[in-house]
């Protein structure tokens, strides 16, 4: 299918973009890489009145370290972060997750913040933001605000972003020395949407596990270090609490089993990565 007709504006600054959002009303949409929005336009699941293109905004294209975070601008492509020199040492969880994120041919154009804004419950970048406790900066014509991942992520394809607001940056906390990180997922094919995605962080006295693809948004749970049966029990309880559902790809039961089995594996891997 082809998209429904829309006006188009290519902007050169965030200020220009939020001014256009303000005058465009609730049917105005931001486009950056388009890897999430364009399929929705082609299927007519989204029918915006105007598309505001921020893909060429230089001031939104950056990766920088600031105050214990790595901040990524709204026009920064996934491939740019994947190739960033500091990724392995500063963001080891993302380093482990990137091979699972789409394909070479989609990371080249898809943006980090676009994936966060799209908020697909199975996608990896929102899951990593939730597990690491990152933040998102929103800007509108009237001001700026910062939301934590937990505040920003509200459900299936939905965020706390209001009409007139756009995501201008996301901040991923840099890894604490000594912590171990691991990521894995189960999908039908390499690069396909995850049936279940799992991200784990192990510190000296805590284990944190985030699950994508089961509940309607990334869900994170933290425990004191658990071993053996206690860990199995905790994972089983978590799996049931996620309230998974049956769909054409997998049953709820299969999803729970993946949480139990891969959950254990990813936690063990995170622990073994501790230094």
């Amino acid at each position: 299918m082809k998209p429904k007709a829309f006006d188009y504006l290519k902007v050169s600054s965030a200020e220009e973009a939020v001014a256009a959002l303000a005058s465009g009303g609730e049917d105005a949409r931001i486009i950056a890489g388009g890897l999430s929005l364009m399929p929705m336009l082609n299927f007519r699941l989204a029918e915006p009145s105007i598309l505001i293109d921020i893909s060429k905004v230089d001031s939104l294209t950056y990766i920088r370290e600031a105050g214990g975070h790595v901040e990524v601008g709204a026009a920064t492509r996934q491939a740019d972060l994947m190739r960033w020199d500091g990724l392995e040492s500063k963001l080891p969880l993302l380093n482990a997750a990137f091979p699972f994120i789409g394909h070479y041919q989609t990371r080249s154009k898809g943006t980090v913040c676009g994936s966060l804004s799209h908020a697909d419950p199975s996608s990896e970048l929102p899951l990593c933001l939730a597990v690491l406790g990152g933040e998102v900066d929103l800007q509108s014509a009237t001001g700026k605000r910062t939301l934590s991942a937990a505040e920003f992520q509200t459900g299936m394809l939905s965020t706390a972003k209001q009409t007139g607001e756009m995501v201008v940056a996301a901040r991923y906390p840099t890894a604490k020395a000594g912590d171990g990180h691991a990521f894995t997922e189960m999908a039908q094919r390499r690069g396909d949407f995850a049936i279940v995605a799992l991200a784990a962080v192990a510190s000296a006295d805590k284990i944190k596990l985030g699950i994508g693809g089961v509940a309607d948004k990334p869900t994170v749970r933290e425990w004191d270090i658990l071993e053996g049966d206690a860990l199995d029990d905790a994972l089983n309880e978590f799996a049931w609490d996620l309230g998974g559902y049956d769909d054409i790809h997998a049953t709820a039961r299969y999803r729970r089993e993946l949480v139990r089995r891969l959950g254990r594996r990813v936690i063990e891997e995170a622990k073994s990565c501790r230094s």
Binding site: Y8, M38, S108
Partner: peptide, 19 residues
Amino acid sequence: CTVLVDGTVMRGCLTLAVQ
């Protein structure tokens, strides 16, 4: 439909001509 736009791999169907 994969093509190169300014040297970058892109899906032709996920890119607008005006872009």
